[in-house]
Structure formats: structure tokens, C-alpha cells
Simulated scan of single mutants.
Amino acid sequence: MAERRAVPPPRAARLHQARKALHRARTKLRKAAVDWFRGGASDWVALGGLLLTVPLLTCATVLTPLWCAPEALVLPIIAGGLLLRPASLLALYAASAVALMIESLLLGPYTGYAEHVDGAGRVTPGTVLVVAAAGLSGLLVAQFRSRVGVPWRRGGTMLFDLRERIRVQSKLPKLPPGWHREMALRPAGGQSFSGDFVVAARTGPQGRTLEVVLTDVSGKGMDAASRALLLSGAFGGLLGSLEPHAFLPAANGYLLRQSWEEGFATSVHLVLDLDSGDYELLSAGHVPAMQLNAGTGVWEEKAAEGPLLGVYDGAEFDPVKGTLRPGDVLMLFTDGLVETAERDLTEGMDRLTGAADRYVACGFHGAAWHLIESVARDVNDDRALLLLCRDP
């Protein structure tokens, strides 16, 4: 019996198989690219590419020494410091050292300045020092990245994510009609990270209570940013989960358990009834708040009593009460906005309220950022300002 020939698959089946193979290849390629960007993939591809550039640069130096000097080897070395792990970087350094020796043999040895003053492409002691210095710098960078565990390709993205997380956590919830809020935060030195942060939530039945916590962590800028990020997450979890009078004692206990060298912070906790306008203000060593009385046009200081957070256990915080009537404004801020080495707290608060008086007639929409600009634009400290307004 004659053998049956294998029937080739129809054209539609072949096209389907080709599409599946193409899809698998695209998926693997995309996964490899994502892993490489995040630093989770092997660096053999980058190592292979950089090792390939070493002989190319060597050939270019030998053929055209005027256009490609021996010092060009620092280019793959610098790139390797950013892309490779320390173990792979040593292989690149070995290849670069071999390339320098080959260039020295082919271009002629360096025997002195007078003889080769007009020579081009010689491997001089200065060349060796430049390449060695670049290699040492790259190795230090690679070792630092390896110790931190964050590759350079992912480091910038991680910092961006942290900044956005702080910004989202500091966003105030939407208020019902009849209320308006303004918030501005400006880190020291124009940096992206700050030691000041805000956490807020609508609590109580049907969310008719607004709780806001403004905190100033010891230090400023990048030095305080890591602690501010940790505290903002912890305070955000506590807010709304505890009774208002239990929040600051719980926050104080949390800071004490961290055992930080600079573990203290100031904080102010506002509990506002959005129906009646009645509020309580609890403070942990924070600067006083200021309330504008729409009837008299006078700013009134609202100072609650309480020690710094993270100083001693069993601290008590006594609230101050008030009411926001239609047209009233409540300002919460940090000391960087009103206190400097050349200006005491009282003078700074007078300057802030004087600048805020310009917005009484036209309203405080968009005023928070402009107030920081006019009162403490060039202050080398973190500044935060929160405005709560009840519409007339």
C-alpha cells in the first residue's frame, strides 16, 4: 500500500501559526525590554555591546589617531559604570587594558616629551591616568547602585513615583458647596521633596466632618523627605481610624517607636464640622493658626497647647475651639513661612496676614501659592500653607 503523503496545512492555518509565533516573539521582546529598564534582567546584552565598541575604538585609534585618541576608551568605561554590574564591569576594564596595550604596541611606545611632541595617538602616562580615573569612578558608581539595589534606569522613575505619592497624599478631599480650600507646598531650595506634608479625610456620618493634619518634620528638603513619606503613610492610616482626640497621642507613640536621631515633628490637627462650621484645633508644638473674622476684618490667632511629637511618652494635647462663619477664613501653615533667622514668629505672622488682606475683597481662589511667593519666596526652608474658606 502506498504511503500517504502528509497534507500540508491550509493557508489559513499557516497564517494563524505565524501570527501566534509573532505574538510570542513580541511578548518576549517587550518583557525583556521592561525587565532591562527596571533592572531585573541580565546585563549581558549591554556588556556584549560595550565589549564590541572596545576593538572598534582601538581600530579607529590605530587608523586615524588624529580623530580618535586613545582616551576615547573612557566612553565605554563611563557607559559601563551606568549600565553594568560590578562583576561585568571588571571584564570591560580588562578588555580596555588589553586595548591600551595593543595601541601602545602599534603606535609606538612613549619615550619622552621631546621626542614625540608632534606625535599623534601615543599612549602616554596621562592617557593611562585618564582611563584609570574613569574606570575607578565607574566602579564606585556601580558598587553604589549594587548596594542600594536600584539600577540607574529605574532610579529616576522611583523618585518620580515617590514625589507623586507625596503629592497625592497631600491632596485635600473635595468639599461640599459653600466651602473652598487652597493648598500650596514649596520645598526648600527648589527641590521636589519636602519635610512638610498634609493628610486629610472626610470622616464621620456621611463624611460631614473634615479632618486635616499638617505636619512639619525636623529637617528640610531631601534630608526630611524620607521621614515625611513614612509619616504621611502612617498618619494617613491613623486619620479617620481613631477618635480625633486620640490621633496625636497615637502619632506621638509612632514617632517614639522609630528611635530616629531627629525623630521629632510638629503637627496641627483640624477637626471641622462642615454643617455648622464648628471646629477643634489640636497642636503638637506647631505654630498657631490664623482665622479671619469676616464681620470685623481682623485676623485672630488660634493657638492650641501641646508638646512636639516624638519627644516623650504620655503627652497630652489640649484643643482650642472655634467656628467658621460665612466669609471666614482659616489659615494653617508651617514655621518656614513665617519664621527665619532675621525675622521672629510674630513679625512673620503679621507679614503673612498683611499679605492675605489683599485677597479679602476678591476672594482667596488661587491665593495660597501667591502668598508663599510674596511672604517667603527665597527662604531656605520647607513652606506649606492651607486655606479653608467658608463662602459668604
Rank of each mutant, 00 (worst) to 15 (best):
R11G: 13
L15K: 12
L22E: 09
L22I: 03
H23Q: 13
T27M: 12
K31S: 12
R38E: 15
W44F: 15
G48C: 11
G49N: 11
T53E: 14
P55M: 10
T58N: 02
A60E: 06
A69G: 06
P70K: 08
E71H: 05
P76V: 03
P76N: 11
A79R: 07
G80V: 01
L83R: 01
L84H: 03
L90V: 13
V98P: 02
L107D: 08
G108T: 05
A120Y: 14
T124C: 06
A133L: 15
G135N: 04
P151K: 06
R154K: 14
E164R: 14
R165V: 12
L172C: 10
L172H: 07
L172F: 07
L172M: 11
P173M: 09
G190D: 05
Q191K: 10
F193E: 10
G195T: 01
F197G: 01
R202G: 01
Q206L: 12
Q206H: 15
T209E: 06
T209Q: 09
E211P: 03
L214S: 00
V217T: 03
S218N: 03
G219Y: 09
K220R: 08
S226F: 13
G233Q: 01
L239H: 10
G240Y: 08
G240W: 10
S241M: 11
S241V: 06
N252T: 07
S259G: 14
L272P: 02
L274G: 03
D278Q: 10
D278C: 08
L282R: 15
V287F: 04
A294D: 04
T296M: 04
G297Q: 05
V298D: 09
E301K: 11
P307S: 06
L308R: 06
V320D: 07
L324G: 07
V329A: 06
L332N: 00
A341K: 14
A341V: 15
T346H: 14
D350F: 05
R351E: 15
D357M: 07
H365V: 14
W369H: 12
S374N: 09
D381T: 02
A384Y: 00
